[in-house]
Amino acid sequence: MAKIGGAAERYATALFELAKDAKAIDAVEADLNALLAALTESAELADAMSSPLYEAEGKAAALAAIADKAGFNDLTKSTLGVMARNGRAGLAGDLARGFSARAAAERGISEAHVTSAAKLTQKEIDALKASLKRALGREIEIRTDVDPAVLGGLIVQVGSRMFDSSLRTKLEGLRTAMKEA
């Protein structure tokens, strides 16, 4: 759940501004969400995009093929191509997350990043969304990640606020308390 920064932040900002001018925010966001899902589902694809063993042109060609097959917006295609040719293909996931955060903010929605030990059901996501809306007083869009190291519970981050009810954190607290005793 690390915040994006550096080059990914700059690409996300530039793409968002271009998409906003072209009134294509929703289309570009859908493209990037599809790419993020592909990178999440295929470790081989994510590794290939990050690997220095593959040349930038090869990565650009692979991203172009994915974009063409999926029917991505021209802004999405060109941004991914520029990123890949500049040796930044490994930042595609961060680009997607950064763009999504800007799109949500533009719509007046806060984005919550939720990490759990196992995949959450839609019913659990809906209940969490309703609970966060009551607590924060605004619409919430939820992005989920699975990290088995959490062991149980949830880690929820909304902006700079973090709520950590994970079993891992509770066990670490107990371990620290036992050392001090």
Rank of each mutant, 00 (worst) to 15 (best):
A61T: 10
G87V: 08
K133L: 04
A112W: 15
A64Q: 10
L91N: 05
M83A: 07
A130Y: 00
G58Q: 14
A130M: 00
S110V: 04
L120V: 02
A60W: 13
R88H: 05
D74T: 05
A127Q: 15
A112L: 06
S131D: 15
A112H: 14
N86H: 11
I125G: 00
R97W: 03
E111D: 02
L63K: 07
T76L: 11
D126V: 06
G93K: 06
H113E: 15
L63T: 14
L91K: 09
K77E: 12
L75P: 06
K123H: 07
K77F: 09
G90W: 04
F72Y: 15
G93N: 09
K123Q: 14
L128H: 09
K69M: 03
G108T: 09
R97F: 13
L132G: 07
G98A: 09
K119H: 13
A118M: 13
A67D: 02
I66V: 14
D68M: 01
L80K: 14
R97D: 13
D68F: 00
F99R: 12
L75K: 06
G98C: 04
A127V: 00
A60F: 09
E106K: 06
G71L: 02
L120A: 03
A127Y: 12
G58K: 15
L63Q: 02
A101Q: 13
N73G: 12
I66S: 03
A118E: 12
A70L: 05
F99D: 13
A112Y: 10
V114P: 04
M83W: 15
A64W: 08
R97P: 01
A61F: 01
F99N: 10
A101S: 03
A89H: 14
G90S: 06
